[in-house]
Structure formats: C-alpha cells, structure tokens
Design a binder for these strands. Structure first.
Ligand code: ZN
Ligand code: ZN
Length: 669
DNA sequence: GTACCCGGTTAT
DNA sequence: ATAACCGGGTAC
C-alpha cells in the first residue's frame, strides 16, 4: 500500500485551474497503480473528492470509523474511509470500492488498438466502468446504485450515471448504501496492456467494452480483468437510460441497467416503434438537393474536392435537403445562406428524434406513416387500455369536464409534430359519452363567456394530472342528443367555437347517430355515396368541435370538406385545407397549391382519419407562415415556411442568384 | 475502389 | 448543449 491520491473533480464552471491536481496529476503521480480503492466522498458542496488508495492484491481494507447509516456496508463497499475534515457533514458518507487501475497511455501503435471514434481524445482521461464480469443481469440490481454504473459512451450511460455520481448530489449516500458487490476497473489504454483478439475490448472507445463486432470474440465475458474505461464525471443530465448502437452491432454489447432496459423495451413495444432501417437520405428532388456544392460553406471547404481536410465530412450547407430539413429544424434567423459560420450539423439534433426520413426518395403520399421517435407518444394518440373507466372518473372532477364549450389549453405546447398520431392508432379519438358520464351535473356550462384567462390555470392543472396528452372536451349542451361530450385531442392555441351558421352549404340533414363516431378507418373501397356521407359526418363532428382559432369547416362542391382560416389576422389567412371524400387532403394558400413535397404532408397521414389528425394539422399550419418570396418567387417555392424563416429556401436562393446576376451586370456596365 | 455524408461519439 | 471528428453505410 502506498499513498493516497486525491482526485478532484470540479464543477464544470470551475474547470481548468490546477490541472495537475486533477486526474492528470493523479496519473502522473501514480503511474504504477494497478489496484486501488476508490473513495467517493462529498467534502464540500462544491466539490467532489475521489480518493484512491493503492492496495496490494488481496489485501483487505481494514477500516474503522464511520459506517453507513443503514448499517454494514456491503462487502464490496468496504467501509467509510477517514477523510479529513468535514466530509460527513450534511449526511454524506464515504465508502470504499475496489477498483483496478491501469495507467493510461496512448492508444494506437503499441498495442495495435484502434483509434477511438469521435473527437480525438484528450490524453489519458480516467474512465470508470463496470466490470463486465459482474452479473449484470442479476435481477434486483438497483440502477441507482453507483456500483452498477457502467460507463461507456459519455453521452449515454456515462451521462446517466454522472447524474448520480455527482457527489454533491444527495442521492449519493443512498445509492451507495444500496450497493452490491461489483467490481470496477479503472483504466485507460496502456501500452503494456495485453491486447485482445480484436483489439477492441481494450479500446476506450465508446462501444468499447463489449463491442462484439467481430462476432463474439469479446474478451469481456471471459476475462475477468477486462479493463474498462471509467470517467468520473459529475455533470450529466440525461433523463433516461439510453442505449444506442450501430445497427449492425450485436444486441448485447453493452450494458443497460435491467430496469431501464425493461422500461425501454416496454416503451418500444408500446410505441410500436419500427426498427430503424437504413440511413436517411436526401430527397434528391428539392431545390437544395438539386443544387451544386457551393464550394464556400464550411463543409464544402472541408471537402477534398475543394482542397479541404475531409474532417467534417458533411453535406454542403446549402444542399441540406429541404424536405428533410424543413421538417423539424427551423432555420436560424439569419437568412444569409452563404454563411460559413453556420453551425455544424445542427440537424443532428432533430435527426435524432425523428427518423422517419429514410425512404425519402420513394415515399409517396399514399404511404401511411408512423412517427415513433422522440418523446413518448402523447397519450391521446394511444390506444386506450382499460382507461375508459378511469378516464370517466377523472374527468368528472376535472375542470374541463365542468365547463361547457370550453377548450382546455395547456400552456407548454410541445411541437405539434410530436402530436402526430401513430399510424395505427385506433379510431377512438372521439368518444361519445352517454348519460352515465354525468359530466357537468353541477351546472358547469355556465362558463360560456369565460375569458381565456382562467384557462391557463386550468390547463396546467389538467396537464399536470394527465401527463402529456392534450385533450379537449367539448360539451355540446342542448342538442338533441343530450349530454354529449366529444373528446378530441388538441393542443393549446387560440380556439374558438365553430359558429353553427357558417356551414351554410351543408345540406340540412342529419346523419344517423351511428355515424357520429367519426371513424373512417378500415379504408377499403368506399363508393361515392359513402364518401360524401363520411364527409358529412366529419363536418358534423367538426361543427361540434372546438377547432383552432378561426378555422371553419364548410362543405364545398366536389364534394369537399374545406377548412378555412377566416381570420385575416392569422398567418394562415386564406389557407384552406381541402379534405376529399376519401379523406385525403391537400392545402391551398392564397389559391396556390401547397407543393406535394411540403412538410405538412409528410408529417401527417395522407388521409385524415382522426379528428386529432385534423386538429394537429391545423395547429401545425398555424405555426407556419406564408413565404413572402419578395422579389422573386421560385417555381419550387415551399409556400409555407416555419418562422423565423420568412422566405423559403428556393425563393431565397433564387433571390440570391438574381442579385448576383445584377451585380455582375452592374460591374459590366 | 471511391465519393459522399449520416449519425454516433467525444471534446468543449 | 453544441461543435467537431470520423467510422462506416451506401451508391456508384
Ligand atoms: Zn457548400
Ligand atoms: Zn432534398
């Protein structure tokens, strides 16, 4: 046994200073350490100390002193170690954990291991990883237990872990006391490290520890001492365990806490999320795709053909496919498209969440989509599983249920895109509530004049209690079918009631009640009559539904059901959603047809089969604005753009081109 | 084999 | 969170 080393991790904010006392310094001081004890303790609120004590093989730590509040520490967490001064104040305790330490070195040449991916690593980051020889599948493993923290990619598990490992986090004491026997290994690449067959298990690279790429030759499972990397990192804020892997990687190459795994799997099943297949591709048709590399942007300059170092390896910024991009990433305010300061793949951000753009090229509008990615599906678009009962009950007391003709508007509206119904959602969006619903018994309808003010409050309540789904309850009092409640999903927005008299063109006839359930799934052949009929049904439902502000449903010749934005104040004024008898829709804006390639077609099922879809569509439209295409209007103008953009890219480019031309002309003269 | 560039990983 | 790097999938 030799000295004690203190590894100090500081808050991100106080980086840099005293590097030598940090991990690097630690390593420099004790390059020969092979085994040690890690002590994690909280000394001060603003600092984390990890003490490392070198121990000999098999040596037993005999530690007196403090014990965890909950009694004996588990064998692996040997005991609290005496830390100087004040460390136990505030209810935190220190424990000792056996770890193996290897001296960091450079990857590469010496042991023939691979260069890690990603940014070049700073030399010698100390990494901590759960030993693969541990029984990670043993059931009652507490994922909150630092002992089970395994770390691989910084951005994934490590981050998860960091959240808990933060020693100024109260949880640490709890977590540690629950620990079980586990081994850690500490290491970074060392030249003298015995190599492994595929040269990967030693890799500090993200997928490293058990990257069975080569088909099961991983040494992790067989070699107890397999060194894994560990990184002490305090900062982390992932909300859930996330495991990612290359498509081709085998399933079990990395460890996910069982519980988290389970959750993940369940979630996956629930959302019916299709396996990701292939990578996304640009549409190849949009203005951007058809463009040539600009040769000026950051990525162009990176390309070999422009004499670049080929480091960034990204597509020309001006060629970022519009179809893909316009979907989810509003462009930065700056409209200067020749910028070279633009950030590197911002698109990475949204890409991650939504992976639907693969198959771009062949997707036609007849294909029904399912959005699975990203945040959980709002509940309203999920199948109701035995929630019927509960729902009713809950509603009874909910403010929403007590108001008539009032829309609840949650305040924090998620991106409308996230509200997309799943492809296979059931047609249960609109449910009839019979008399037994008993809503509103207490004269809840009195509120018709209620301003919008109160709703904010109510909304948040609703949101809080019901999680993340948005539901609008509309009570239609006094109609022939007394006490009828429609439930439609929606999102906050200005809302208005649909005036009854707007639908003048609607023939005055009443579809049978059985059709009031607006559900047109089932597809199949529908004759004209049926189609017209179904439009009527839809119209009828719409008339009873609170729609986003100033959208008015009317029936037009065709037959067509049109939704008009009647307000001149809306950015969507003069926009019409045309729903055809087969419930496919198209959109016109100021008499211009919204091009088929436009996002909204991609983000919505081609057929409107659910009221929710329609509402969602309208809400999404409300987010957009008409491309001003000031001086010129590109033939491929997108018509609707997402602010802060005011002009679509094609128009901008065209404008740009013309400007250039003009400039040249000016020069010539 | 090469060019392109997506998307995971890592530094900051 | 975001900028940067680069392995590797894919089309050719
Ligand atoms: Zn470019
Ligand atoms: Zn494109």
């Amino acid at each position: 046994m030799s000295g004690v080393v203190t590894m100090e991790t500081r808050r991100d904010s106080e980086k840099e200073p005293a590097k030598k006392t940090g991990e690097d310094g630690w390593r420099e001081l004790y390059p020969e350490i092979k085994k040690c004890v890690i002590v994690i303790a909280r000394l001060r609120l603003d600092r984390v100390n990890v003490k490392l004590k070198q121990v000999k093989d098999g040596e037993r730590m005999s530690v007196g002193g403090r014990r965890g509040r909950s009694g004996e520490p588990s064998p692996d967490w040997m005991a609290p170690v005496d830390l100087d001064d004040t460390d136990c104040e505030g209810g935190f305790r220190s424990f000792v954990k056996k770890v193996k330490v290897r001296v960091p070195g450079n990857y590469g040449a010496a042991n023939g291991s691979r260069k890690p991916r990603g940014r070049p690593r700073r030399a010698g980051l100390l990494r901590l990883e759960r030993c693969q020889s541990c029984d990670v599948t043993a059931d009652p493993v507490d994922i909150t237990d630092p002992a089970h923290y395994c770390c691989t990619p910084q951005s994934t598990r490590l981050k998860e872990r960091g959240r808990r490992i933060r020693l100024n986090d109260k949880q640490i004491s709890v977590n540690i006391s629950q620990s079980e026997a586990n081994n850690y290994s500490l290491n970074s690449k060392v030249p003298d490290t015995p190599d492994t067959p595929n040269g990967q298990s030693q890799d500090t690279s993200p997928s490293s520890c058990c990257d069975h790429k080569d088909g099961g030759s991983c040494s992790c499972s067989t070699e107890k001492e397999n060194p894994l990397s560990i990184l002490f990192k305090k900062e982390v804020k992932r909300r859930r365990w996330r495991r990612r892997k290359l498509r081709r990687e085998p399933e079990d190459d990395s460890w996910t806490p069982p519980r988290a795994k389970k959750v993940e799997e369940e979630a996956k099943q629930k959302t019916n999320q299709p396996e990701r297949k292939g990578r996304r591709r640009a549409c190849g048709r949009c203005a951007a795709c058809l463009r040539e590399d600009c040769g000026k942007c950051l990525y162009c300059l990176d390309k070999r053909k422009f004499g670049g170092p080929e480091k960034k390896k990204q597509r020309c910024q001006l060629r970022v496919c519009l179809v893909v991009e316009s979907n989810f990433r509003p462009r930065p305010p700056q409209t200067n498209l020749t910028v070279t300061t633009a950030t590197e793949p911002q698109h990475h951000r949204w890409r991650r969440g939504r992976d639907e753009n693969e198959e771009e090229v062949k997707v036609t509008r007849t294909r029904r989509r399912r959005w699975g990615g990203g945040r959980a599906t709002p509940r309203w678009m999920k199948k109701e599983t035995g929630g019927g009962e509960r729902k009713k009950k809950g509603k009874k007391n909910s403010p929403a249920a007590q108001e008539s003709s009032v829309l609840i508007m949650p305040t924090d509206l998620p991106h409308p895109l996230l509200l997309q119904p799943m492809e296979e959602e059931e047609a249960v969006e609109i449910t009839r509530r019979g008399a037994e619903g008993g809503l509103c018994e207490d004269g809840g309808r009195a509120e018709e004049t209620a301003g919008r003010a109160w709703r904010e409050e109510e909304c948040s309540e609703v949101v809080t209690e019901s999680g993340t789904y948005y539901e609008v309850e509309v009570e239609v009092p006094g109609s022939d079918s007394d006490e009828e409640t429609l439930t439609a999903s929606s999102t906050p927005s200005e809302v208005t009631e649909v005036p009854d008299d707007v639908t003048a063109s609607c023939p005055a006839y009443d579809p049978p009640n059985s059709l009031e359930l607006f559900s047109l799934l089932g597809g199949g052949a529908m004759d004209e009559v049926t189609c017209g009929w179904s439009l009527l049904c839809l119209l009828r439902v719409l008339r009873r539904t609170v729609l986003p502000a100033h959208w008015v449903p009317v029936l037009a010749a065709g037959p067509l059901l049109q939704l008009l934005q009647c307000s001149k104040l809306s950015s969507m004024s003069d926009t019409i959603v045309h729903v055809q008898p087969d419930h496919c829709f198209y959109i016109t804006v100021q008499s211009r047809l919204l091009p088929d390639t436009h996002t909204v077609y991609r983000t919505h099922t081609p057929r409107i089969t659910q009221l929710s879809q329609l509402v969602s569509l309208l809400l999404e439209l409300e987010r957009l604005t008409v491309c001003r295409g000031l001086r010129v209007r590109s033939p491929t103008c997108c018509v609707l753009v997402a602010p802060p953009c005011l002009t679509c890219l094609p128009c901008l480019l065209q404008e740009e081109e013309e400007e250039e031309e003009e400039e040249e002309e000016g020069r010539m003269n």
